[in-house]
Design a protein around this nucleic acid. Sequence first.
DNA 1: ACTCCTCGTTGCAAATGTCGCAATAGCTAT
DNA 2: ATAGCTATTGCGACATTTGCAACGAGGAGT
Lengths: 253, 253
Amino acid sequence: MSQTVARAIDIISFVSVRHRTLGQIAEHLGVHKSTALRLLQTLEEGGFVRRVPGGAYGMGFQLIALGQLALDQVEARSLAHPILHELSEKYGHTVHLGELAGDQVVYVDKIDGRGTVAMGSRIGLPAQAHTAAVAKVILAYQDEKTRARILEGAALTRFTPTTITDADALEADLALTRERGWAEDDGEHEDYINCLALPVFDARGRVTHGISITALRAVAPLAELRAHVDDFREAAHQISKNLGWGGDAYGRR
Amino acid sequence: MSQTVARAIDIISFVSVRHRTLGQIAEHLGVHKSTALRLLQTLEEGGFVRRVPGGAYGMGFQLIALGQLALDQVEARSLAHPILHELSEKYGHTVHLGELAGDQVVYVDKIDGRGTVAMGSRIGLPAQAHTAAVAKVILAYQDEKTRARILEGAALTRFTPTTITDADALEADLALTRERGWAEDDGEHEDYINCLALPVFDARGRVTHGISITALRAVAPLAELRAHVDDFREAAHQISKNLGWGGDAYGRR
DNA sequence: ACTCCTCGTTGCAAATGTCGCAATAGCTAT
DNA sequence: ATAGCTATTGCGACATTTGCAACGAGGAGT
């Protein structure tokens, strides 16, 4: 809609990867250096980019400040964090909190487990709708219409042999999720990682959040995670209560 | 420089305070609603703002993601965090890590102490140059020219009776800081809060970072903080070593 | 020490993108 | 149903932005 703003945003994401010089940025945008310079000057004034020693541009501190502020505004976070922390401590696994926002599930909290390896998830980034257990569990509990709308935007890209790439199979997986009360990710995004996720209910009994427990298959295969599902559910239940939910452990009111 | 980008930035900070409707945003900018809408649509596409249930606009999740990314790029953070955490655990006070970036000192890490009260500092926000102990300690160790440049941009606003509002007095305070090796904030920003800060040396022996220990005067007055200064210095020293510094505990090489 | 590059920065006229208007569409509450 | 609100789209006028060219600063190589 607005070319200028789109370019400014492009600059920020370009610069977020690594520091860039004016020339590189201008070339990336396909505009004259003077044009890029004026955009950068405005962004710098706002603290969105900054000049690093050497003259290149990098992300500004205002981004950090706004990110923290935005994070603080995620109410569920503060209500869930202590419980998630406890869970992570107890089992040593990585724990996520996902929130449904618009048409995607976003990670809003993450507690790294012991001996964590590189994992794609990051607070603030959206989860893959068809592979991430948190996404699947939240999706499973949405009404038909919402689910269809979200899945429409999902590409069902194959990442591993177990990735569900068929829409009907995914629907079946979601039905199973509803039935047993939790979702699983059987190495569907990374071969060697599996997760188990449970729904969190809000004050109106809707599922707007989910928690997931992530572990290396070699450390804790799905079977082991399943063995602790009652304990995990207890944590999810606790968070639900913190969100003002008055139902029982099975999601009924 | 670029009106459009400036407006986009204005929108983000306006929306960061609380959710706003299109009308409010347009009025705030002093532009027609259709203009504001087009800016918002572009920002939404980039994830910088999002529509919240009800139709209003709020901060987008991309801000969280970028903020986290920017934070991860602050190298000193990961090197200092464990040490700061330990310090905070041991004394129960709030601990900050400040970094000199351009012409201001920015908080890049913060560990809340036990029984923390509201404090203005936030990760990503700049520290007051003339009151915050972290800012003063970093400033004290800059060369004449840098110090002058930074102080030029500082307003020396009075917040409390002890705030140093005179440039000469501030220079004297900084000289004292250099001499004894630490800076103090004797309720200069908030009456009831005092801090003690120490310099962190980088690989080239320059002070680009500082750590501060903050406490309620009622809990731990300056005299008590001073009693532990050797311990605090040990932590600062440890961080310096992590940054590749090879000097001794007094900042000499 | 000098020249040759490259990079960032500024003034200016052309033109592209943006702006406000007015009309349309969606929504809520009366 | 209707009034009154907010959000959204098409379009012509024009203000903002754009690319150019020229300048200054800094570094590398001779």
